[in-house]
């Protein structure tokens, strides 16, 4: 078993014919993901990467019945693309694009919540269930089918956690990049719930970073609701206050959102802390052994 995606996932790609979407769709297909079509307004009727291109998500839904969509359109069009997929009835939407205005996300998040849709991202690497399907931009080759569920606000940092757990032979059940924006579609808590009820997941790695209080809220949730061991690493222990560290959400503002606060809270709630990013895999192995 796994969460969110598997071999049966029928994926639609929005912004399909663009260069990034093309590159990553090729890689996903190679990994075994079932891409059933794509959308690029104005290019409907063409064939791209051996699957049909549609002018709208609605047309694609009627013709090829996707049950998940991945979005690569430029930031200024993401609000429209996410709401289009939602309107067309797609229940799992992954937005890879970085730079979506926060106020757009306030509206989008309210709408997808009302419709009971799972939105992953924006500004995220996507989801992968090793050996089943890859819906994202992560390098498939570093993954290994296994028992560790990984949730992360950061892309390349997730790859580190993946590589370490693969090298130690633990492998991953599902990896979800929830993205580095202040208003993510899916929170740590949403994914923790799913991983708690997934048989394949034996331990959970939660990679957080400075900014906001998502890790603190997750810590409280873990204490009360998660029976599986959780290992956490928080990036940005050396980050200065008041500066945005790349990700829109990674900023220590008004003295809040420091790594030290997060680590303290996580420890209090029984989470195993990887003091350094080099220890994520080792910690997971220790906990599982």
């Amino acid at each position: 078993m796994s969460i969110l995606v598997d071999k049966n996932t029928r994926l639609l790609v929005q912004g399909f014919t663009g260069s990034q979407a093309t590159l990553h769709s090729e890689q996903s297909i190679e990994y075994g993901t079932n891409i059933v079509g794509g959308v690029t307004p104005g290019k409907g009727g063409q064939t791209h990467l051996s699957v049909p291109v549609f002018n709208s998500v609605h047309e694609a839904v009627e013709a090829v019945q996707p049950n998940a969509s991945i979005i690569f359109v430029p930031a200024k069009f993401c609000k429209d693309s996410i709401l289009e997929a939602a309107d067309a009835g797609i229940k799992l939407i992954i937005c890879i694009t970085e730079g979506v205005p926060t106020l757009d996300m306030l509206i989008v998040k309210k709408r997808v919540d009302e419709l009971g849709i799972t939105l992953i991202g924006p500004n995220c690497p996507g989801i992968i269930t090793p050996g089943e399907a890859k819906l994202g931009i992560m390098p498939g080759s570093i993954h290994l089918e296994g028992s560790v569920g990984i949730i992360s606000r950061s892309g390349t940092l997730t790859y580190e956690a993946v590589k370490q757990t693969s090298d130690l032979g633990l492998g991953q059940s599902t990896c979800v990049g929830i993205g580095g924006d202040p208003i993510p579609g899916t929170s740590f808590i949403d994914v923790l719930k799913m991983m708690e009820s997934d048989d394949q997941t034996k331990a959970i790695v939660m990679v957080g970073e400075i900014g906001g209080t998502a890790e603190e809220e997750a810590a409280e949730f873990i204490k009360n609701n998660i029976s599986k061991p959780v290992i956490s690493y928080i990036a940005g222990q050396t980050a200065p206050a008041g500066k945005r560290m790349g990700h829109a959400g990674a900023i220590i503002a008004g003295g809040k959102g420091t790594a030290a606060d997060k680590i303290k809270k996580l420890e209090e709630c029984g989470v195993h802390i990887a003091e350094n990013l080099l220890q994520i895999g080792k910690k997971a192995k220790e906990v599982l052994d």
């Binding site: 992360s152 950061s154 940092l157 580190e160 990036a235 940005g236 222990q237 990013l277």
Partner: peptide, 13 residues
Amino acid sequence: GAGLAMGTMDTIK
């Protein structure tokens, strides 16, 4: 990557 960049700073420290 922003997360790895922060992680690298932390590792140096």
